[in-house]
Design a protein around this nucleic acid. Structure first.
Lengths: 225, 225
DNA sequence: ATGAAACTAAAAGATTATTTGAAAAAGCGA
DNA sequence: TCGCTTTTTCAAATAATCTTTTAGTTTCAT
């Protein structure tokens, strides 16, 4: 369950976003000023929607404060080009911005995308799990549907690379580069394919329909989805 | 922190640029040939300074390769009018060129300008959305009305090209040039039509009335409106 | 109404992935 | 170190998927 803080002084817009997002299954909290936002931010959220122009200051300010202590994703709501330029100029680490007026559908897409990215980044934890698969990077152990799985060093490296870049498609050449320390004497692409195959045999319940290691035809592989 | 790849076979010039830019706070990597550049480009850079005449080929060649997968800004270093003319035919949104001999100060100004332009133009994120369509260029994923859509490599390339040039009409010959490595053995225009058709089948709610990929009769295609 | 341009559908052609098996290399314990 | 096991690599056959061509149909501008 994701929780979203909506910081927007326009009551109509704020309410509109709130109603829509809640209908989509998000938890939301609406505030209308920087100070209220600061207060609420003592609790934790998955994401902040942040207006730039607020009655008691600029959203940019708040974004900077947030960045000082966390990686909480921020999406700015901008009213015009000037504000967009401000964002560019300030280079505050915002994750995205969206220009008013916007359709709630588009907003939701952006939110999803940002959340997806941010949960990927949180992949610096030592233990990863997805569906029946659990990988402990520190202990280098993998379990699938509760059962331990033995992987070779290369297989583990490959799986780790895919997981750490979950959501992104990794081309074969990138995978090869990263697994076989850059410019080792040339490695055949098929070698990679074979390693993928063995990983699949060990992990996938149905090899013909992989849910973990997915082929992107003509490009490479990606984890999940 | 910006990182700049310097591709220039003249050791003196290359070194001079490197020293100056590093003093200005840029990270730089120097290479002296196309092949070295290709190797380094597996890592990411903010900008490429690219000589035209290189021992193992033309910088234009490399630029084209870069363009196939990204909008990484390129500034050409040209030695004479002939080279400048060659570039004109080549130019793309975020490219620029500078004629030798140049002062490093001028070079830095250009670099700043290009970087500014590229971060503004390339927009706020890798995510594009319009009506029900969302394209995540980094993830290479597309969703339509919330549902994921699987595109082939060519289809994705085509869609990306149209979206990145939203607002202008792309002629068939330009599309073909950019998608099929320029002077591949001649590609039939109908091939392109067929790819467009498949994209439409996958994306358009009503194929007869396309809202995303719009035909401009007698000329080519354009994205949206 | 006409010819040129664009679209469609389906088959042929070309690429790219997967699978398999076997040889080479690397690890490992005695 | 030797022989054994495991892992990795490569090559070739098969399978899956994508691309291009062809040919017929529709749409468009004049």
């Amino acid at each position: 369950m994701y929780s979203i803080l909506i910081v927007e002084d326009d009551i109509i817009i704020n309410g509109g976003i709130k109603v829509y997002l809640e209908k989509q299954g998000y938890e939301t909290v609406s505030v209308y000023s920087l100070n209220e936002a600061r207060e609420k931010l003592k609790k934790s959220f998955s994401l902040v929607l942040l207006d730039i122009n607020l009655p008691d200051g600029s959203g940019l300010e708040l974004c900077r404060e947030i960045r000082q202590s966390s990686e909480l994703p921020v999406i700015f709501l901008t009213a015009n080009d000037t504000e967009e330029n401000m964002i560019e100029g300030f280079k505050y680490g915002c994750d995205d911005y969206i220009s008013k007026p916007f359709s709630v559908g588009v907003l939701e897409q952006r939110i999803k995308a940002v959340l997806r990215r941010s949960t990927v980044q949180s992949g610096n934890s030592d233990i990863f799990s997805y569906k029946g698969l659990t990988v402990d990077f520190k202990r280098m152990s993998v379990t699938n549907e509760g059962k331990p799985v033995k992987l070779s060093a290369t297989e583990f490296k490959l799986l780790k690379l895919l997981i750490k870049n979950k959501g992104q498609v990794l081309t074969r050449s990138i995978l090869i580069d990263r697994i076989w320390d850059c410019d080792e004497n040339y490695i055949d692409e098929n070698t990679l394919n074979v390693h993928i195959r063995r990983l699949r045999q060990k992990l996938e319940p149905d090899t013909k329909n992989p849910q973990y290691i997915v082929t992107v035809f003509g490009i490479g592989y990606t984890f999940g989805e």
